[in-house]
């Protein structure tokens, strides 16, 4: 019984874990005060480069993973140099435009991406491996938030002018955030490719952008654990609703998301709320 349940849902668990990568990629920049959808592009870049590497050299996808991460980081660095001069809303819109462009570029670069036909990637990624990678990623974010970088980006996010008057170089800190976001997004793109064993221009598109923003908003954007929780809840909710309320699953799913947003506007994980309670 339990084994059946696991068999039915283990792919959902796998996708939830990959979605954590995308959610944390978004969180990385959001925690420095920048809303960007560009993680989709890092994922595409990292995914296709990693897939080609695996296909052409026969190395294990785990070895291709660091290359995907570096590719994503480099792209993110370029995005930061170009886009960080833009103000909030424009930055978000420009990153959305980048996502749209990415799909066109992917379609028209068949030597790298397979074009319309996509790429088959006959590899095996076990859930255990994915779990270990996810734990490592969480450790990275835990260490970052505990370092001076963690406090500095929080300051920049809350009040960039005050942060600057304390000597914090906002632009440079945000560029670091982009590079982290790019590395995590690129790695996530490769993991998604390995999970799906097939990638095409539609793999890395608006649906990922939607997933990661929803996950971060849902889980809470004031702690990295919020992105983790949000990605799991957002991935699991439709599956659960389908099992529990199959007739009205879409409505129930939407209602549940709305309820979380209305009653927990700062997300499921909100360190400020804990501290307020602690203060009483």
């Amino acid at each position: 019984m339990l084994a059946d349940l696991w068999a039915a849902y283990q792919s959902s668990v796998g996708f939830a874990m990959v979605n954590v990568f995308f959610a944390l990629s978004t969180y990385a920049v959001l925690s420095a005060g920048v809303l960007s959808f560009a993680s989709v592009s890092y994922a595409a870049f990292g995914g296709f480069i990693g897939a080609q590497l695996v296909l052409n050299t026969g190395i294990s996808p785990l070895l291709a993973l660091p290359v995907s991460a570096v590719a994503g980081a480099l792209l993110a660095y370029a995005v930061a140099l170009l886009f960080l001069r833009l103000d909030g809303h424009w930055m978000a819109l420009a990153s959305l435009a980048l996502v749209l462009m990415t799909r066109v570029v992917v379609l028209n670069a068949p030597t790298l991406t397979g074009g319309v036909n996509g790429l088959s990637l006959p590899v095996d990624l076990s859930l255990a491996t994915l779990t270990v990678l996810l734990l490592l990623l969480m450790l990275v974010f835990h260490r970052l938030s505990g370092s001076w970088y963690g406090i500095a980006v929080r300051a920049v996010r809350e009040d960039p002018a005050v942060a600057a008057s304390l000597g914090m170089p906002a632009r440079r800190l945000q560029t670091i955030a982009f590079v982290i976001s790019g590395a995590v997004g690129g790695a996530g793109g490769m993991l998604l490719a390995a999970m799906l064993q097939f990638i095409s221009p539609d793999t890395y598109f608006i649906n990922i952008a939607f997933t990661m923003i929803a996950a971060v908003v849902l889980g809470g954007s004031y702690h990295w654990a919020g992105a983790v929780a949000g990605a799991f809840v957002f991935t699991a909710l439709p599956v659960v609703m389908q099992a529990v309320l199959p007739q009205i699953q879409d409505v129930a799913n939407g209602a549940a998301l709305l309820a979380i947003m209305v009653f927990l506007p700062r997300g499921l994980i909100d360190p400020r709320a804990w501290r307020l309670r602690h203060a009483r």
């Binding site: 929080r154 809350e158 004031y222």
Partner: peptide
């Protein structure tokens, strides 16, 4: 002050220039 930070964290943020270590 920065929202969401404790009194100590505010002052730690003020010490950014004297952090004395790399990222």
């Amino acid at each position: 002050l920065f929202s969401g930070m404790t009194a100590l964290e505010q002052v730690l943020a003020g010490g950014f220039l004297r952090r004395g270590t790399s990222l």
